[in-house]
Amino acid sequence: MTIQHIDVAYTAVATAENGRDGRVSTDDGKLDVVVNPPKEMGGSGAGTNPEQLFAAGYSACFQGALGVVARQEKADITGSTVTASVSIGRTEAGGFGLEVAISASIPNVDTATAQALVEKAHQVCPYSNATRGNVKVELSAG
């Protein structure tokens, strides 16, 4: 697989302290959160976790990509939502991996059009491009 090169428009910078059981903040101070492993993984679940942060970023980014595609296709996505579900678990090799399910609700188009828009957005979204070939991503729309 060829690594894509980009013309950088923006760089986000975040720093973690104490890994999955600490704090994450951005250099501009707009994000400063406590992170803790979820109870399902033996943690306190008191703070957010990297999977929730990834799901938040992916869903927002995918919604933006959906907007780009909808404008190109002249489709009405007013009132649409995108939900990203990010799962973590052990891989066969013994490490950890992620799986993602993207679900889009697009009320102003039929199911076939919604699915086509989601498939096209998956080709545009930077998160989808970053995970392609590395992370299982399931898409659904309605």
Results as ranks from 00 to 15, higher is better:
142 G>H: 15
21 D>V: 12
40 E>Q: 08
33 V>W: 10
42 G>W: 13
121 A>D: 05
8 V>I: 13
72 Q>A: 11
36 N>K: 14
110 D>C: 03
60 A>Y: 09
13 V>E: 13
74 K>I: 04
57 G>Y: 06
13 V>P: 08
73 E>Q: 11
53 L>R: 10
54 F>I: 06
60 A>D: 06
87 S>R: 11
100 V>Y: 02
79 G>D: 07
95 G>R: 10
124 V>M: 05
54 F>R: 03
96 F>I: 10
24 V>Y: 03
132 R>Y: 07
112 A>C: 04
24 V>R: 06
102 I>P: 00
55 A>G: 00
2 T>Y: 11
101 A>E: 14
87 S>I: 04
38 P>W: 08
137 V>F: 02
6 I>W: 13
60 A>I: 06
26 T>Q: 10
93 A>C: 01
2 T>G: 12
2 T>A: 14
90 R>E: 14
46 A>R: 11
26 T>A: 14
38 P>Y: 07
30 K>G: 15
139 L>W: 04
67 G>E: 07
90 R>D: 13
8 V>A: 13
4 Q>N: 14
131 T>K: 08
57 G>K: 01
65 A>L: 03
96 F>R: 08
129 N>S: 07
77 I>S: 01
109 V>I: 02
130 A>T: 01
107 P>W: 01
105 S>R: 15
29 G>R: 13
71 R>A: 14
52 Q>L: 11
88 I>R: 09
7 D>P: 04
136 K>G: 10
107 P>L: 04
122 H>E: 05
60 A>S: 06
127 Y>P: 00
19 G>C: 00
90 R>L: 11
129 N>E: 05
87 S>E: 12
74 K>G: 02
39 K>T: 13
134 N>G: 04
110 D>Y: 01
95 G>E: 06
132 R>M: 09
26 T>P: 12
15 T>V: 05
20 R>G: 12
87 S>W: 02
9 A>K: 15
50 P>G: 06
33 V>F: 09
122 H>V: 05
67 G>H: 08
133 G>V: 00
48 T>P: 03
26 T>I: 14
105 S>M: 12
133 G>F: 00
54 F>E: 07
24 V>A: 07
115 Q>W: 01
95 G>W: 09
78 T>A: 14
9 A>F: 12
51 E>C: 03
7 D>M: 03
34 V>P: 05
109 V>Y: 00
108 N>T: 08
54 F>A: 04
64 G>D: 10
131 T>G: 06
6 I>V: 07
35 V>S: 00
96 F>A: 07
94 G>I: 13
84 A>W: 03
29 G>C: 11
58 Y>S: 02
48 T>Y: 10
101 A>I: 10
14 A>Q: 09
35 V>N: 02
39 K>S: 10
141 A>W: 00
71 R>K: 12
85 S>Q: 12
21 D>Y: 09
